[in-house]
Design a protein around this nucleic acid. Structure first.
Lengths: 212, 212
DNA sequence: CCCGAACCTGAGCAAGCGCTTAGGGGTGGT
DNA sequence: ACCACCCCTAAGCGCTTGCTCAGGTTCGGG
């Protein structure tokens, strides 16, 4: 209940992008990148969507690539935060894994425009920026692997190949950004629930999540 | 055991592309599109990789988009053929599902450069070409859904949400094209095996595939 | 020896790209 | 009233893009 600055602004989607004009440009860029891809998007298109002239973009961002970098970084941090929050809860490994997948998938479905940019425009980034982002992604991997590992250790899960299953779980979640459509028949909550259940099956959890 | 024309040339990767120079250009385009994406690839780059001048490209293909279309079409047909072949075998639904996933995943891993173009450059296609390709993709969906549906009907599988699970299974397989790396530690066969097992768990198959 | 077809190249066009620069106009402090 | 400051635009620069076209090379048949 404080001011504008927080670790992760939950209220407004891009709250931490401080000059209001810069935020409008960034939001426009997210839409454009998600629709047509980074390389197919022109700076004129971005500026146009934000209701500004092409030159206005370069007052707030040094290059077009910097725009992508800021989107990618904030997006990854948000996704990682969502994952971490659920992973750090109390409960069995199954509960934590289901919670993590549910939230992570819900995030990818709700914010699927952002997620599409974040997940699929990674190698449009420059060398330095890409390695920075890749480091963030490895942390997501570590979080999921840890939960699965703990589940195996405690005898909750039956997983022959922990790294492989971790990869598959994350892959499944991430790909939601590709196919999810807001006009589709499934809500983000429904997809999250479905996927949490599927992942528990993948790890051979002894107790299905929602028992009814 | 006949001449050059077959439903799907299994021998040479792009055997059906008939003028030899056109095939060289097409292969170069697959590599370039997979590495940098369709929009970031220039016609000069494609021609250069094929050892020709930029103008040579336009003798064999009307536009850059036609190149992508031919790649996408042939690629989708191959992938669908692989899926169909396994789906039409004799055996239990579990055996057929495992076989289909194993082959489909192996295809995406082995031909991951092609697959990457095929799966992720879909909306770089023009309106007409895209709808044509989307129709092919729906057939893949139908194949998987049929197997899962039959498994449920015969009491082999326990699947509360058949369309949703179908979606997840295909999503999992397709995303292999994104992360698979030839220098990585897993072979296409290993990934196929792992994924076949994971999918059988997802559908709650009563008999695990490889019983040892 | 020449012909015509198949194939490819050098040079280049119009358009569009990312980005820069000079300057205009509104706002708040004093 | 005035100035410093921020924010934005019109115009355009240098370059690259997808694509074109006139012309050259190669080769089998007469």
């Amino acid at each position: 209940m404080s001011a504008a600055e927080e670790t992760t602004g939950e209220d407004t989607p891009w709250g931490e992008v401080t000059p209001e004009a810069a935020r409008r440009l960034l939001v426009a860029a997210v839409d454009a990148f998600a629709e047509r891809g980074y390389h197919a998007t022109t700076t004129r298109d971005i500026a146009g969507r934000a209701g500004m002239s092409p030159a206005a973009l370069y007052i707030h961002f040094k290059t077009k690539e910097e725009l992508l970098h800021r989107i990618s970084k904030i997006g990854h941090e948000r996704a990682l935060y969502v994952l971490d929050t659920e992973a750090d809860r109390d409960g069995t490994a199954a509960e934590r894994l289901a919670g993590a997948v549910r939230s992570f998938v819900r995030w990818h479905a709700e914010r699927h425009t952002t997620a599409r940019v974040v997940q699929y425009e990674l190698d449009a980034l420059g060398e330095e920026h890409r390695t920075e982002i890749v480091a963030l992604r490895r942390r997501s991997d570590a979080v999921v692997r840890r939960i699965i590992g703990e589940g195996v250790r405690d005898g909750e899960f039956d997983v022959p190949d922990v790294p492989g299953t971790t990869l598959a779980v994350l892959s499944l979640c991430i790909d939601v950004a590709r196919w999810f459509n807001a006009q589709g028949s499934r809500t983000p909550d429904e997809v999250g629930e479905l996927y949490a259940d599927l992942v528990l099956r993948m790890v051979g959890a002894r107790t299905p999540s929602g028992q009814k």
